[in-house]
Amino acid sequence: MALLEVRDVVVRFGGVTAVAGVSFDVEERQICGLIGPNGAGKTTMFNCISGIYRPNEGLVRFGGEEITHLPRHRMTELGIGRTFQNLALFRSMTVRDNVLAGAHVTGRSGFIANAFRFAAVRREEAQAALRAEELLGLLRLRPVADIPVAALPFGTQKRVEMARALISRPRLLLLDEPAGGLNHEEVDALAELLREIRHSFDLSILLVEHHMSLVMRVSDKVAVLDFGKKIADGTPYEVQNDPQVIRAYLGDGHGDEHARAA
């Protein structure tokens, strides 16, 4: 059984069908790329999995459990972590506190326990602090750990988001355009990082990305969306040579710069 199963998902916004019956799987410890031209429905699909949108039809199962109608804040608890396409950090907080905020689900303490700072709270805090420290190291954020996150450059903020998503030890990491806005070297580092993460955190990654060479380099499997439908799915090699995919990217003009990038 796959870790993530997406079955016949349909999402409509008013009269527009953004996703028209898409199914795919992400296996344990797999890096799966989700690609497609602009407006193909990638981000909509992504938001369905993370619970931001509810699909009109179809279902999403995670670890065998249907999650389609779970409240959004339950997803992290189950083991789904995510980053956002346009940074969604807690701007007034320091890098360290942003990362610690990601550890929210690993704690249990409530208002009263925190106000009195019972021993259990202190233990919880110490554990979270230790893990935050590890991730700050892993993502080279230690030098900026105590700086408010809004003051940092874009690429650094993206790494903060990654650390924040990883600290809760997700089994599936959803990355929404992690390479967006990064320069060539940073993309290389990112590719390295993704493989490193998959290995050391023992998790699956679903990657929605425009940056074709990154997707092809790191993915075990690629699913291609076009006009809300899945048109291909397979290894990077298979997908790159699929005539339908080539037509989608080159055929009707939009998105051909991405094909060239590949």
Binding site: S50, I52, R72, H73, R74, M75, T76, E77, R82, F84, A88, L89, F90, A101, G102, H104, V105, R164, S168
Partner: peptide, 8 residues
């Protein structure tokens, strides 16, 4: 939105 995604 991000807070919710962190499980809050």
């Amino acid at each position: 939105t991000a807070a919710e995604a962190m499980g809050m």
